[in-house]
Each structure stands twice: as structure tokens, then as C-alpha cells.
Amino acid sequence: MTQTSPPGWHPDPGHTGIGPLHERWWDGDRWTDHRRVPPHVVRRRRLRIGLGITAGAVVLAALGGGLFLLSDHSGDPRREAATAPSAPPSGAPGGEGRERGGRGESGAPERGLPPVEDGYATDLLSGISLPVPDGWQGQSSVGGAAVTTGEYDCPGNASGQCVRGGVFSRAATLLKLDTTTAKATATRDISTNAEESYGAKTYGGITSHEELKSGTVTVADRQGYLVRWKVVTKNGTDGYVQSLAFPSPRSENVMVVVRFGFDIGSQAPALSVMDDITKGIKTASGTGAGPGAIA
């Protein structure tokens, strides 16, 4: 961390790569001894995403841009168990993310956390906010942010719900990407993003892909890089996927990854919305402003 980095929970710099990545409390000057399991690992958070899906009926699977929803079956072995985090220091965030419906809801911020802005989904760890287009759903949390729209039954997974458009942010370390540059991170992530968004688990596998775009991009006043593919699937809808990487506005040493996944079809978002969201990513409130602009 740098001397200018604000206090908060961040990936533990002492992580050896064995076992789950823990977060450690940075008090603004030094690393303390307080550690915790990241909230997204501690629990599979129940979400309300879109119409007709109750909060207790689904759980979010972090499958890249094309997020999909799994039925919440009690005792399902796929649900990971984790120990509860230790109590945070006085004044530290408690680690509970906040769920947001629609284009964001205003409300009093939790103690120790910056406010979640209306019309944005905020990734508090990475220090960025994703714009939530009209009619989309946004979710803010400590460990990442997501915006999604248009649920339907996954062609290759009868128990899951796919979305016609999804955007999902995480710190690169949480995705086990150990690259140091934006270009290397985005280039390495795009194949994983494509597989997790449109692969065998949901669409029967990808039969081919075409690179549509790659290059530098300015996001939240940081120099980043994006790679965009068009993918052809074995079953169901083809799609567009994009991996975008850039240094966190809070620290040059923290790389942020934003995964996009859009179906191709009359009911899916237009490809131009992917550009609009990319341009609209900004520094989270309280850390300075700076919407992105495609180079």
C-alpha cells in the first residue's frame, strides 16, 4: 500500500497462494494484524435481480460478465463453507456489502463505508463505481460490483438463470490474476471470461470466437486496456464478451478487472451499451472523480 491509500480492507499482501485469499486491515499508515475472509467467500449472498425472482430463491455465481444464477438448494455441496471473520478494529467496516435494486437507491451509508451513489453500483475494495443503465439492476459490495439485465433459463443448465447482459468487477488478485500490466491482465482474462460467461456450464461450450476490438482505454483517470470478443456457442445465444483492466484509483498497485457479457439478439442490450458502461465507470464517491473515456 502507499502512504496515500485510505484505511480499509485490502487483499493481504502476505498471502502465499495456499488457501483462500484473506483481506487485511490497512489503517492508513501500516498493515495491522486484523484479517478476515472476504464477504463474497463467507457467504453466497442472496440477491434480488430482476422481476419475478425472490431474494431467497437464488444465489449469485461469479461467472464473469455473463453472470448466471443458481438455485439455492440447502446442503448443496457446491456451496463453500468458511469461518466467520474476526471482529474488525474500531471504526473499520464490518464487511457487509449492500444490495441495490434498479438504478441504485439512496440511503444512509454504513459506518466506515463511503455512500453508494444513486445510479451506480460500487466496488468498495477497488474504489470504482459502475453506471447502472435504465432498467438494469445494480449490486454494490466490499468485494465487487455487478449490473445485470434480462433473466432467462440457461440453455445448458436447467437449474440456472442466465442474463442477457452482465457487467462484473473484481480486484485482479481475487480472480487469481498475478499480472502487473493492464494489457497483460485483460489479454489473459478474456478467455476465462468467455468460458465462464458462455461456456459449457451454460451454453454447451464455445465453438469459435472472433476478436472485435483491443487497445488502450482511459477509465477513472487511469490508463487501462480492453479486449472484446464475439463468441459462437454450441447451444442457444451467441454473445459479446469484454475484459477490461486498469489500475485502481486508490492504488496503482491494485489492478481492477471488469468483465462484460452481452447476448446477441433482439432482446439483448445493444453493443453500444457496452461502450456506454465502459465510458461511465468512475472513481467511487469520496476518492475523487473521473469518468472513463474510450481512447
Rank of each mutant, 00 (worst) to 15 (best):
G65R: 05
V217Y: 07
S266R: 14
A295Y: 10
A194W: 01
G28H: 00
K201V: 00
T185F: 02
V273D: 00
A121C: 06
S214D: 10
T181D: 11
S208H: 15
V241N: 07
L177S: 14
T207S: 13
R36E: 02
T207I: 11
L51D: 13
G102Q: 09
T180N: 11
S243K: 01
V132E: 04
S71I: 12
G204Y: 06
M255E: 09
G199T: 07
A172E: 13
A81T: 08
Q137K: 05
G239E: 06
Y225F: 13
I128P: 05
T83S: 13
T54W: 12
Y225W: 15
I49Y: 08
E105Y: 04
H10I: 09
R45E: 09
A171E: 02
G64N: 07
I190A: 07
G286C: 09
L60D: 11
L67P: 09
V42N: 08
P115F: 06
P114E: 08
G144H: 06
L130G: 04
E96Y: 10
V167H: 01
L130E: 01
I281Y: 00
I264R: 10
F260T: 05
G143Y: 00
R78D: 06
T16I: 02
A268V: 07
D118A: 14
N235Y: 11
S90I: 11
N235L: 14
D33C: 04
T2I: 01
P114A: 11
V142L: 15
P291V: 09
P155I: 07
L113N: 13
I190D: 08
P249A: 00
E151M: 11
V232G: 03
G64R: 00
S141M: 09
K176E: 15
I18G: 03
G156W: 04
G17H: 04
E96R: 13
A57V: 07
L67S: 14
P249Q: 01
G261S: 05
D263Q: 07
A284M: 04
S214R: 15
R45C: 08
A289N: 15
S141F: 07
D118H: 14
S86V: 08
Y225Q: 06
G101M: 04
S251L: 11
R170W: 10
I49E: 08
D27A: 00
S141A: 15
A57N: 13
Q137G: 09
R45P: 02
M255C: 06
G19P: 05
G28Y: 02
V232I: 14
T202E: 08
P249C: 06
G95W: 03
A293P: 10
A186D: 10
I190R: 10
G150F: 06
I277G: 00
A295S: 15
V147K: 02
R48D: 06
D12G: 03
T216K: 13
P6C: 04
E151R: 14
H22T: 15
G65Q: 05
H10W: 14
E105V: 06
E210T: 15
L175V: 09
L113A: 10
I206E: 04
Y225M: 07
P131A: 03
D33Q: 10
H209D: 14
R222Q: 15
V42A: 13
L60V: 14
T207D: 13
G56E: 13
W26N: 00
K176F: 11
A172H: 12
G94H: 09
V273R: 03
D189A: 12
L47W: 12
A92S: 07
S140E: 02
